[in-house]
Amino acid sequence: MVRRRHFLKLPPGGALLVYSLDGEPLLQTPAGEVQVPLRFFTSDEAAIVEAAVSRIFPSDDTGPGAKECGVTLYIDRQLAGPYGRDRYRYTKEPFEAGSAEQGYQGKSTPREIYRTNLKSLAGLASLSEAEQDNRLRAIENTAFFRLLRQHTLEGMFCDPMHGGNRDCLGWQLIGFPGPYMSWANDIDRHYGETHRVKSQSISQILNRKVVPWEELEP
C-alpha cells in the first residue's frame, strides 16, 4: 500500500544531522521550517508524540531533551521496523488475560498501541505546556504512558544509528561516553573524581557504518 507522505515539522535551524542519516530528502519550507519524512506516524500523530515526549524529557536549563535528541523520529523508525510489528514477541493465539506476574498478554502490536492511544491525545500539540502536563498526568498510570516513557529513554540514550540521541547529545548530557574500547588504565583511578571524554557512537569509533537490527529485518 502506498502511503501518503507524512512529515515531522521542525523549527528552522539546527537539527539536520541525524535526519539525513536515513539518506532521505529533507524538505525545507520557504519559512525555513524543516520537514522530515516519517515512516510510520502521520504528521498529526508525530506532532502529538513530539509534544508528549518533550514534556516527559523537556529541554530546559538542565540541558537538551527529547526534542534535540530526535526521540520522535527514533520512535517512528522503531514502529516502522520489526519491533513495531511485534517481531520480538511470541504472538501465538490464544491471547488471554493473565495475572500481573505473567507479563503483558495483549494482542496489540506496538504500532496498534500507538495508533489507538494517540487518538485520545488528539490536540495535545496545540495546548500550553501546563495543559499538556495535565493531559499527560491524567494517563500517567496507563500501560501506554509507561511505554511512551520507556521509548523516550531509548530515544534519548540509544546509539545514534537508531535515530535518537542525536549527535550523542543524550550521552553528553549525563556523561556517558558510548562504546569506548578500553578503560583498563582508568578503572582504578579517578576515584571520586569525574572522568569525562567526548561521547562517541559505535560508527564514529569504528569509522564505518554499523547496521542496526531494524535495518537488517525490515
Binding site: C158, D159, V210
Partner: peptide, 13 residues
C-alpha cells in the same frame, strides 16, 4: 565489536 549497542543487544536480545 559492532555489537556494543545497548538497544539491540541488552534490550531487544
Amino acid at each position: 565489536i559492532e555489537g556494543m549497542d545497548e538497544l539491540d543487544y541488552a534490550l531487544r536480545y
